[in-house]
């Protein structure tokens, strides 16, 4: 095709079109999504002001009344807030996707000779960047109020890696919800209904020991609890889970990886099917 003469009367595409791969197309979509954040910085409120308020609220308002094991409540709290922030990736991706679908941007992309997966990959990567900004903001806030990472650089980095991996699995949930619902308002409603139990019925803000037994089982098997406990262990924030805790909390690092894989296996096919269905007709 590149050898075709480029006369104006030419019947084929009149400009040499490079066959760019999925990676480059996805990067272009990421560039566009990041420009959106630059133009509308208030999009970042959900991963900046909001979690900082949570940190301050829990650290100073509830903190005194919650008896946390080990190095004090603020150290106990920070990994929980980090986990909550990364879980909210799915909210970010769902809102962004619903917006693009509703405004016809996805249709525009689909009419182009590009890989349709790059719309999703680009959206996922920019959402992970979005959430990572939140993680950095949380870390700085934590450091300011006395939170520390005490187990060395490698373990510290491993904890951030686990957070990102878990965020990746949450993105598929976001794509699924975003493709199923028609409006941003509906997405917000659905997401808060999912997010609040998921991030609160866990060891994120309070130890599970004092919960009613049935609730404690749910909380300890909650994937968010594994992630939170893994971060606590890797950063040396508080004691390891007690021997009475459920199995995943005994091995939280492995459990976080396994949960991320399971969630991806469940939600990725659902998400891709829903996105395909939504964008086909």
């Amino acid at each position: 095709m590149s050898t075709a003469t480029q006369t104006q009367q030419h019947a084929q595409a009149r400009i040499p079109v490079e066959d760019r791969g999925l990676v480059q197309q996805s990067l272009t979509v990421v560039w566009r999504n990041l420009l959106h954040i630059k133009r509308m910085p208030e999009m970042l409120l959900d991963v900046t002001i909001q979690p900082v308020m949570f940190v301050l609220l829990f650290a100073f308002v509830f903190g005194g009344s919650i008896n946390a094991p080990g190095t004090g409540y603020r150290e106990f709290l920070l990994p929980g807030i980090m986990a909550q922030t990364i879980v909210f990736s799915c909210f970010v991706v769902a809102v962004g996707l619903t917006n693009d679908l509703a405004k016809g941007i996805v249709d525009r992309f689909k009419s182009l000779p590009m890989s349709r997966a790059s719309v999703l990959v680009g959206r996922s990567v920019s959402s992970l960047i979005h959430s990572s900004i939140g993680i950095v903001v949380m870390a700085v806030t934590g450091l300011l109020i006395g939170w520390r990472m005490r187990e060395g650089v490698l373990n510290a980095a491993l904890a951030f890696g686990l957070l990102l991996l878990f965020g990746f699995s949450m993105i598929w949930l976001g794509i699924w919800v975003g493709s199923m619902l028609q409006s941003v308002e509906a997405v917000q409603g659905a997401m808060f209904t999912i997010m609040f139990p998921l991030t609160f019925v866990a060891n994120t803000f309070a130890p599970t020991q004092n919960m009613p037994p049935w609730l404690r089982v749910i909380a300890e098997w909650n994937p968010v609890s594994s992630l939170t406990q893994a971060c606590r262990n890797l950063w040396g924030n508080g004691d390891p889970a007690s021997a009475a805790a459920a199995f995943p909390l005994q091995h939280p690092e492995i459990a976080s990886i396994v949960w991320s894989i399971i969630l991806t296996i469940i939600f990725a096919p659902l998400a891709m099917a829903a996105f395909k269905r939504r964008s086909r007709d």
Partner: peptide, 24 residues
């Protein structure tokens, strides 16, 4: 409906689609 990206400039809109087409 004109599906331009409102948060991009006119030039960026053209560039976005051009890059996705695979234009140098």
């Amino acid at each position: 409906a004109a599906t331009v990206d409102e948060l991009l400039t006119g030039r960026e809109n053209v560039r976005l689609i051009g890059r996705l087409y695979g234009l140098p």
